[in-house]
Design a protein around this nucleic acid. Structure first.
Lengths: 193, 193
DNA sequence: CGCGACGTTGATTTGCCTCAACGATTGTGG
DNA sequence: CCACAATCGTTGAGGCAAATCAACGTCGCG
């Protein structure tokens, strides 16, 4: 039943049947309704979430009242406010379901136990963190060096499947622009063709 | 002699005398002259660097010919092109010494051996990656939600000591603005006082 | 001493935002 | 199951933060 998280883990580190079962056993499957929050500012993120079905976004609300999408997740992706989770400090982000979703919760304490129990699990989380770091760095480079339109093009090229799952305003704020401006970019593309 | 790297590691995970010595033994101390590169685009970053003395910057050169500082490092910080290092793929960044410096090199293969030898070392790298990820995320939020001046103020507040070590153009491109604009921000502050 | 690296200042331009108004689509309660 | 309200995306006018371009002062060092 939790075979998806086992598959995910196996791809990072080979696990025996027993190890796989132990790993999967600490996850709690939960349904999350559309528009429901699993993380909120000023509350500590006690869990991270592995998405089985559905989609999520993590965002902050700036002083200007606008919101800025920091990350999103669909099937087989993880999401939480990592800064809050790893330091166990109050969150600054909202994490919200974009659709009716099903997730596997991993409790912070349980994660620590896993890592103590078997160093293969430590390896799994190490690889996840490293890849996350590399991903963030590529995104930062894209934000610093490219124009809004170039970022949009790059996103389409890299995540064509994801595109259809995200509302336009989520994509826009993920790419660091307003919905209006994204709309104009798309419109320009049509006209030029 | 490599006590700085041992101190660093001990703060993340307690190590026995023996473990500490094993950990430190794989690092190679090297001098790097000002303006010398330790990582270059299209070459794979085979090492990560722990700074004992001096300062470094990692940057990419955009299509426009400008350069964009992705990260920097002074004493007790790490630096490399992580995307290149962890995937062992060609780099996109330059990593350059800003001053005559001394570093401890950690070879990618040696790092893998360390992690195999003792899971405490795995933990060290896991924690480093997690903190790096959290740092990157905070920076991304700052870039997306704040104005150039607010980012500058935040930097001064958080890293006052670092400020004096970095040339203005490195700071500007780290904060995501031009040197000219940073200069104007500073000038405005003086006038307003 | 002279040249390159670094920082400053001002004039001009521009990429993207803000604000406002309006269709289209989705969802919901009566 | 319809009506009305949100929610979501589009379009246009105007504005601004920051970039670009250009010229110049200063310092350090080879």
């Amino acid at each position: 039943m939790n075979s998806k998280i086992i598959d995910y883990a196996q791809k990072l580190v080979p696990l025996s049947q027993q190890e796989a079962e132990l790993f999967a056993s600490v996850f709690v499957e939960t349904k999350v309704k559309k528009r429901q929050y699993v993380v909120q500012p000023s509350f500590t993120a006690k869990k991270r979430y592995f998405v089985l079905e559905g989609a999520f976004r993590a965002f902050v609300v700036g002083d200007d009242g606008n919101d800025y999408t920091i990350s999103f997740a669909i099937e087989n992706w993880w999401i939480t406010d990592y800064n809050s989770y790893i330091y166990q400090q109050p969150a600054t982000m909202f994490v919200m379901a974009l659709e009716d979703s099903i997730v596997l919760q991993l409790d912070f304490e349980k994660e620590q136990e896993l890592k103590k129990a078997n160093h293969k699990f430590e390896t799994i989380f190490r690889i996840m963190a490293e890849r996350g770091l590399a991903f963030q760095q590529r995104r930062l480079i894209s934000n610093l060096t490219q124009t809004a339109e170039e970022r949009y093009d790059l996103f389409i090229e890299k995540y064509p499947q994801v595109l259809q799952r995200l509302p336009q305003y989520v994509l826009a704020s993920f790419l660091g622009m307003t919905t209006e401006f994204l709309s104009k970019i798309r419109n320009n593309k049509v006209k030029r063709k």
